[in-house]
Design a protein around this nucleic acid. Structure first.
Lengths: 216, 216
DNA sequence: CGACTTGGTTACTCGCCCGTAACCTTACGC
DNA sequence: GCGTAAGGTTACGGGCGAGTAACCAAGTCG
């Protein structure tokens, strides 16, 4: 059990940077399907076309690997959004471009989205990381609302603003999730639908209209 | 290592039905904090104040136990909502009562909510179960919208309706999640906020107002 | 008072999977 | 052409935790 006089010099031996990306690709894929705990390092390594110790050598422990996935996918997503929604545009245009970029990202990186949205909640170590990212998003949306609002001379409490922003982000994520499960659906069209709900609903609200609970 | 001449006949020996509920309580608590895989049967048993084999005897394997949790919490939630939103009420009143019941449930059963919302997504075996429940909710909301809409003589495509309903459910879940992490927040008030976003936004939409993407 | 059922326990087995030690081989600098 | 580092491998240790076997004790019903 020692021979192994390698015939097949199958063109391997790639530079570190390339392997790392392959590993991350594989990790995102496996984590998205199995979840953190059920995913095995062996499967990730095999899927990346490499042996396990290499994964440990380059990306560290399983937990570190997962965080690396979160980081890469999260950064990609935030950059896609930020790059589209330039801060000097009018609020509705900004919101629209942000939404379009977001749904575009989800459509193109379904696995990445699944890791971020479906897997990283719940388990303590990562929930924080994720919540922070989400909070930044909510912050940005709240900022947009606030801006649009002040432009019309109105003002709303901070908590109120945060809650509405939270609801909008939640609705958007929910639609993204729907999109992830409907490969035939068009991201652009989905973005338009979300924009309708968000802009019309928020617009009403910011205009001062309110619904009041009936007595009882 | 065999003595165990039990002094302390500490009043134990409870009927099966009681123990089962205690176990489910403990399971929901542990699953909600750790997630399915990271939760250990030993911890659940200990938390329930009983030894592990009893859990296996009454509720079966870990997977079956988790499903039992999902079932109990899911049923409780759906019943709370259905009981509040009687189908013969006007649409806005129905929506309002449903939301109030929902947020009330989440406020009172934060652990149960966490299991349903944060843990059961992702892992294959349970995702289906959960998705079905969610689909029923979406269905109901879509039905409400459709009803309100027809009452005003308008009509909208089925997919359109489903997507809007999906967004509303997502926004509601998101707010519920926010509520779960803010123990000081008032469920009733949160429900009112959600009602504002939902009713005003959806109202606009159903009235035929639309937002259109700018050229480009 | 026995016989049996129901509630309960301790103390294992056994497999999976994270993480690593030890070793090989191709390229590249000098 | 030779040292050394960078890319790569096989094969194992060891722990943790799901699930079980075997056994105990208290009601309960003829």
């Amino acid at each position: 059990m020692l021979a192994r006089v390698s015939s097949t010099p199958t063109f391997k031996r790639l530079p570190r940077a390339v392997r790392e990306q392959q590993m991350l690709d594989a990790a995102v894929k496996v984590f998205s399907r199995r979840g953190f705990h059920a995913a095995s390092m062996d499967e990730i390594a095999e899927d990346a076309g490499i042996s396990k110790p290499m994964v440990y050598a380059y990306l560290g422990t399983k937990e570190e690997l997962f965080v690396a996935c979160l980081h890469r996918e999260g950064t990609r997503m935030m950059e896609a959004i930020a790059g589209a929604a330039a801060p000097d545009l009018p609020a509705d245009e900004r919101l629209w471009r942000g939404l379009r970029a977001f749904f575009g990202f989800v459509g193109a990186h379904r696995d990445g989205w699944a890791v971020l949205y479906r897997q990283a909640r719940g388990s303590q170590p990562f929930a924080g990381e994720l919540a922070a990212m989400r909070a930044r998003l909510v912050e940005v949306v709240a900022g947009m609302l606030d801006h649009a609002l002040r432009a019309e001379g109105r003002e709303v409490g901070e908590t109120e603003l945060e809650v509405v922003a939270y609801a909008l982000v939640g609705a958007t994520e929910s639609l993204a999730d729907w999109l992830a499960d409907h490969p035939e659906a068009d991201p652009e069209k989905t973005a338009t639908r979300m924009m309708n709900v968000a802009w019309l609903g928020a617009g009403q609200l910011l205009r001062g209209a309110t619904w009041r609970p009936p007595a009882g």
